[in-house]
Design a protein around this nucleic acid. Structure first.
Lengths: 197, 197, 197, 197
DNA sequence: CATGAATGAGACTTCATTCAT
DNA sequence: AATGAATGAAGTCTCATTCAT
């Protein structure tokens, strides 16, 4: 009997996953194409090819859609940084930092306007547990990278480095830069300059 | 929106100018207190102690209020930079850059949330003539400062320097930093490091 | 108005069609009772026993409601004329014209003020495709009727005949005439007199 | 002393006349250019080059402006008919009717859209004393013309003749006809046909 | 579960009119 | 008298959300 239940549940869950994915994808597209002010649940549902009722089956309200989009972004970011660090066998500081930057820039340049929109939404988010946890996790990884350089790394330093990188990447996004390698080189210069040899 | 921005009459009487000022001030307050999503013309008029009709005498639509706020911010910024440069008698690069940074940071730390909100609004503005002119003007001044250092200054360099400063100032804003002197010191370090002796 | 007419969804469910019908009926009633200047979407929705939101589900704006009312009127008119012509087995000119007049007068005297209001609205409509098509269709039918008389029928003649009938019917409407038979007799006299044996 | 008052009053009255004239002219222009729905007091004042306060000095409300426009139209119409009849020395029916038609058509073709707009406004006017008096006066004149033909003229006949002429003139207006002579000829044919030899 | 019709609070905007200067 | 800034009721329209089918 339990088996029967399970076999009937699975397809539903798969369909549900597809629905959720479609909703998030549609939201991202609207954000990119028309901007945050034009994002509304009816449009999301329409563009996702889903009824408005279905949207509210999976998201309690409009804000939840944005929150989930941010959650995805954060998750992709942490994963990317982790992978960058894993790939870097050596303990050489420069190489590690470069790899991390490469992974983050990748995320931004893929969908510049989306990244920007989500960054903005994030900036005005209340500092809930999840946000704090994410920042702790990210800062921890950055600290690890900067630590390979030898000297001690203060919280202030981490935030400054993140701020520098974020500022330069966003500006590159807005300017529609495409030369990822050059951008990385310039950010490295600023960060290393800031850290001071 | 069919209507071009600034079709509405310019305030001639003193009373009218007070009305416009009240509207802009109220808008800024709401932006700071409740965020961009909570900004609406009814609330603006109420908070400004003005009838909704008066708002529409001077602004063709809601967007125009934001636009004027941005215009003000830009104007204040250019003025501040000019004054900083005027005050700096010496041609010493560090001193000039420090003075400019001080003036810009001042603008941000005075009203951190407003500065942030306007920066964000600006990021999604279409690149109209006015926006371009502002960027040209600002970049010109920055170029002058950086030029005092001796070496040639590319457009890329200017934008990177601006991006670094902007990124760090905004992050300081969000973190509610108040030590303006320390912030300036750190930005100087990053910029000078980036420029490379 | 940026939005083209008829962007809104077509009613699929029966319930939706009832809503649309109620909106149009309510609009007609208001037009009749209070006149064109008093017609507004809130009142329409209220009188239709429908929420204002529902109105905007099916009509992109207020004008679209008027447009649909006119469309209905035109459709009823063409149908009425067709039926009148079908019923007239003989090829006798007088009988056919009389039948057509009877059907059109019927439409007017049923709801004089509505017919009048729609005629007026029509007069100031831009000459869009639909309007032209309607006029072509109607004139074609009138031409057929007049053609039974024997002589050739110019476009000018058709328009004059239509103008005469329209002028007399509208004046009868305003004067609240009720004797349809007498009105028809007088119009016939004017038309036949104009055509000149 | 009375003289002093008079000499100071005159210029004021002249200026006032000019203001009133400007307001009415502006209203007519807006009616023609943008239609009845776009007519509003602020726009009228602006287009008249007069302050909104001045408009309300001379007209108690918006409706009064329209009313005055209609009053003007009626007055011009009666005057035109009178002049046409005066000019017609002979008692010949055809000549007199032709002259009257010519004068009325003149008024319409000069400013077709204005005439149309005012006709429409008139149609929905309450039947106040002034309206009734105008109709009585006009019908009286028409009766006089038709009477020259010999037979007795019923009220019905007068209204039908007016309706025929009005219908055909308005249709010619809408069709932007310019050949006044031909139009007159066709109307004569319809009217004479209607009257029956 | 999905659908999509319906809701209505609330946002945007206009415009007739008043009144202080 | 003339001006034009100010008013606010009322109209247009949107969109997050609910709920009957």
């Amino acid at each position: 009997m339990t088996e029967a239940i399970n076999t009937r549940k699975k397809p539903r869950q798969i369909r549900a996953q597809a629905t959720v994915a479609a909703i998030l994808e549609a939201s991202a597209h609207i954000l990119v194409d028309d901007g945050h002010d034009a994002l509304n649940t009816n449009k999301i549902a329409e563009r996702a090819g889903v009824s408005i009722g279905s949207l509210y089956q999976y998201f309690p309200n409009k804000e939840a859609v944005m929150t989930e989009l941010i959650r995805q972004k954060r998750s992709r970011m942490l994963t990317a940084v982790d992978m960058a660090l894993d790939d870097t066998r050596s303990d050489v500081f420069d190489t590690a930092l470069d790899a991390v930057l490469a992974s983050i820039i990748q995320l931004h340049l893929n969908w510049p306007r989306l990244a920007l929109a989500l960054d903005q939404a994030e900036a005005f988010l209340p500092l809930d547990d999840e946000t704090i946890q994410f920042k702790v996790a990210l800062n921890g990884k950055i600290k690890e990278v900067l630590g390979r350089q030898g000297s001690k790394v203060s919280e202030q330093t981490i935030q400054d480095v993140v701020a520098i990188a974020k500022g330069m990447i966003e500006q590159a996004s807005l300017a529609r830069e495409t030369d990822e390698v050059d951008l990385r080189r310039r950010i490295m210069r600023a960060v290393i300059g800031y850290l001071g040899r």
